[in-house]
Computed example of a mutant assay.
Amino acid sequence: MFIKIKINNQFLIKQGLKIALEIARYELTSEQIDRINNLINQLDNSQNKLELTTSQFIIFDIKDCIRIFKRSESIQWIRTDFIREILALETSF
């Protein structure tokens, strides 16, 4: 099954996911890390919107990554705009 992801700002999602992945990587499988990295590599550094069609697996991976990120103490030290976009991405599925 494929799902569409709407991204409002590629740069913020890209940087936010990189940070979330760095925090969550010790609790994710190598396959999950690879899939999230592949998604990150599809994004550019623009502030443009984007609509991606992706598999349900990557959605589950992103949700796991964000869940771990939200539990971390590191979230308190991350830029608010990155956190806002990551949390908006989580609710868009």
Rank of each mutant, 00 (worst) to 15 (best):
I3S: 01
K4P: 04
I7K: 05
N9I: 07
N9A: 04
Q10M: 13
F11G: 03
I13R: 05
Q15Y: 11
Q15C: 03
G16W: 03
G16Y: 03
L21V: 09
L21E: 06
I23F: 06
I23Q: 05
A24S: 15
A24T: 02
A24Q: 05
R25W: 02
Y26D: 15
Y26L: 11
E27F: 13
T29F: 07
Q32D: 11
I33H: 06
I33T: 12
I33W: 06
D34H: 10
I36M: 11
I36Y: 10
I36K: 11
N37S: 12
N37C: 05
N38A: 13
N38H: 11
L39D: 10
L39P: 09
I40G: 10
N41T: 08
N41L: 10
Q42H: 08
L43F: 12
N45G: 12
S46W: 07
Q47K: 12
Q47V: 10
N48P: 00
N48H: 08
N48D: 14
K49N: 15
L50K: 15
L50T: 11
L52H: 11
L52A: 14
L52K: 13
L52R: 08
Q56E: 15
Q56S: 15
F57T: 09
I58M: 07
I59W: 01
F60P: 00
F60S: 13
D61Q: 01
D61Y: 01
D61V: 03
I62Q: 04
R67L: 07
I68Q: 07
I68D: 08
F69R: 00
F69E: 03
K70W: 00
R71A: 02
S72A: 08
S72F: 01
E73H: 03
E73I: 02
S74L: 09
S74H: 06
I75Q: 00
I75W: 00
Q76N: 08
Q76R: 04
I78K: 05
I78G: 08
R79N: 12
F82E: 01
E85R: 00
E85C: 02
I86A: 00
L87P: 02
E90C: 03
S92M: 04
F93Q: 06
F93Y: 10
